[in-house]
Structures are given as C-alpha cells and as structure tokens.
Amino acid sequence: MPGPVNDPAPDGVGSGTKQPAALSGRSRELVLRVVSSLVILPPIILLFWLGELYFLALVALLAAAMAWEWCSLVSPDSSSTMRRLSGVSAAVLVGAAASSLQQPESLFLLGALPLIYAAAVRLVTGTWILKLLPGLLIAFCPAFAIYWVREMPDLGLETALWLALSVVVTDVAAYAAGRTIGGPKIWPRVSPNKTWAGLIGGMAGSAGFGALLALSLEQAPGLVALAGAVIAIVAQAGDFAESALKRYFNVKDSGRLIPGHGGILDRVDGQVTVLPLAAALMLLSGKSILLWTWP
C-alpha cells in the first residue's frame, strides 16, 4: 500500500564528510535545470506567439504527457498501452474542446470521451479504474484554459504569458525568500522546505511582475498586482497538492521527462490550479484580467 515518504534529514545533519558531495549533487541538478530551461523555453514561447493550431498542438501534447504521468503515478503496474490510451485521450479531449469553440457539435465528443475512455480501460485491464479518470480532468483543464485565454481577441497573448510566467516568478521569488529569510514552515509534513517567508516573497514577486506588465500595457496596475498576489497563493496550493500526492504514492518526482526538473506534473503543478480559475473568472467577466478596472 502506498504511504507517506519520510522527510529527508536537514542539510548537513548526520552527513559527516559526505556533505560536500551532496552539495555537488545539488549543483549538478541546478545546472541540469538551467540547461533544460534554456532548451525548452524558446520553442514554447515561439508557439505561444504563433497561437492557433501551433499552440493547440503544444497544449495537447502537454495534456497527453500529464495524463501519461498520472496513469504511471496512480497505477504504476499499468501497461504501456494503458498509458498511451490515457495520453491520447487527454490530447483528443483538448482538441475536441478547442474545436467546439467553432463547431458546437464537437461538444458531443467532449462529453462522450471520458465515458469512452472508461470503457477502454475496462476492455484493456478487465476492471473499472476510476482513479485514472481524474487524470483526464487534471490534464485537460489547465491545457484548454491556457489555449482559450491565448485565443482571446483582446490581449490574449499577453494574458496567457502573464499567467504562465506569474507562476514561474512565484516559484523563483518564493525560493529566494525562503532560502534567504527562512523561518516557520507552512506544512512541513507535506513539503518540508516551504516557508511562510517564501509564500510572502512569491506573492510580492508575482504582484510586482503583474504591476510592471500592466504599466507596460498602459493599464491600471492595482488590480493586476492584486491578481498576481492571488495567483501566487493559488499556485502554492497546487504545489502542495502535488507534493501530497507524490508522498502518498511514495515517489520523488512525477516522471523523468525533463532533466533536472522531473516530470511535466512537477513543473506545472501551480498552473494546474491557476489556469482554470483564471480562465473561469475571465469567462464570467467577458474580458482579460489585464483589462479589469476598479469599480
């Protein structure tokens, strides 16, 4: 049965003469992270810029990878066929939702696909694996949300980039504040390195990033800065949720797709919570958050 992962010992505690080697290992991981980011980010930003089918292909691919990782995480004994089925189903679901924006009849496929997926799981495995179905939702919601935001007629590109980069800024600012200031932990049993100082630093970083972007677009910075702070909180909630899930299933990373980073779910845990919420609020308001004004 899966169970909680034991928290690692604090740096330097009980490590004796091996501490320099541990530091060297962390340095290598940091180099891997930087190199991976430099390789991955340019084509992703290019596809953001191009939009339309190019961007749809990107988000469908990411959804497929997320569903694959979810299947591997919650059902580690699943076959490669089952994992491929999960990935393809998530990608098709995103494509059907995007198509339904111009072709309402595609909504039929959008509603039927989860049932088709459940039936396929039954045929492949001989059992109903309901725990695989949330993976479709977790993969679909942020992928379609960022596509829908990107295709908004007014400031779609700017809003999509702002949402995605705000989560990145939150992570960097939270890490810097947490390492520099330290202090009380938020939830040490689930994420032993997350501090209140880090959360506040992440909120400040995301708020500042939003204010600067709003000023560059000649918009009022107040609401965008406030939205940035809220984004930081919601992103950290997604981070905690994924950390709790990994501890429950006794794994360090959701996958090994990105050197130095782990899996796709490890990198987009904040996006999973931020993007659907932001898209829903903009759908209700009828315009980008970047165009919101004070009452």
Score class of each variant (00 low, 15 high):
242 E>R: 01
237 A>I: 15
268 V>N: 01
285 S>M: 10
248 Y>Q: 15
256 R>P: 03
225 A>H: 06
274 V>W: 00
261 H>V: 12
217 L>P: 04
242 E>G: 03
222 G>R: 08
242 E>W: 07
234 V>F: 09
235 A>L: 08
232 A>E: 04
261 H>C: 12
289 I>F: 15
265 L>Y: 05
278 A>M: 10
275 L>I: 03
235 A>V: 08
265 L>A: 08
270 G>H: 10
251 V>S: 07
253 D>E: 05
213 L>F: 02
221 P>L: 06
279 A>M: 12
271 Q>A: 15
291 L>Q: 13
252 K>W: 06
245 L>N: 06
215 L>P: 13
245 L>Y: 03
286 G>H: 04
280 A>K: 00
228 G>T: 04
235 A>K: 07
255 G>P: 04
268 V>T: 12
266 D>A: 07
292 W>Q: 02
260 G>I: 13
277 L>D: 03
229 A>L: 06
258 I>K: 11
221 P>S: 09
232 A>Q: 03
251 V>Q: 09
220 A>C: 03
234 V>T: 15
284 L>P: 00
275 L>R: 03
244 A>H: 10
251 V>R: 12
236 Q>V: 08
214 A>D: 13
222 G>A: 14
275 L>S: 07
279 A>L: 02
222 G>K: 05
259 P>L: 13
231 I>W: 01
270 G>Y: 08
254 S>C: 08
278 A>N: 00
236 Q>E: 14
226 L>Y: 02
238 G>N: 08
229 A>W: 04
232 A>R: 04
253 D>N: 02
272 V>C: 02
250 N>R: 14
218 E>Y: 13
283 L>K: 00
238 G>F: 07
220 A>S: 14
240 F>I: 12
268 V>A: 07
231 I>S: 06
258 I>D: 12
241 A>L: 14
291 L>C: 08
216 S>I: 05
219 Q>M: 11
284 L>W: 09
239 D>A: 08
213 L>A: 07
220 A>Q: 14
235 A>D: 10
267 R>S: 06
242 E>T: 03
254 S>W: 05
226 L>I: 14
280 A>R: 00
281 L>K: 00
218 E>G: 13
221 P>F: 03
230 V>D: 05
214 A>P: 14
245 L>H: 07
290 L>H: 05
266 D>S: 09
279 A>R: 01
219 Q>G: 07
271 Q>I: 13
272 V>W: 00
261 H>G: 13
258 I>M: 13
234 V>H: 11
228 G>Q: 01
226 L>Q: 08
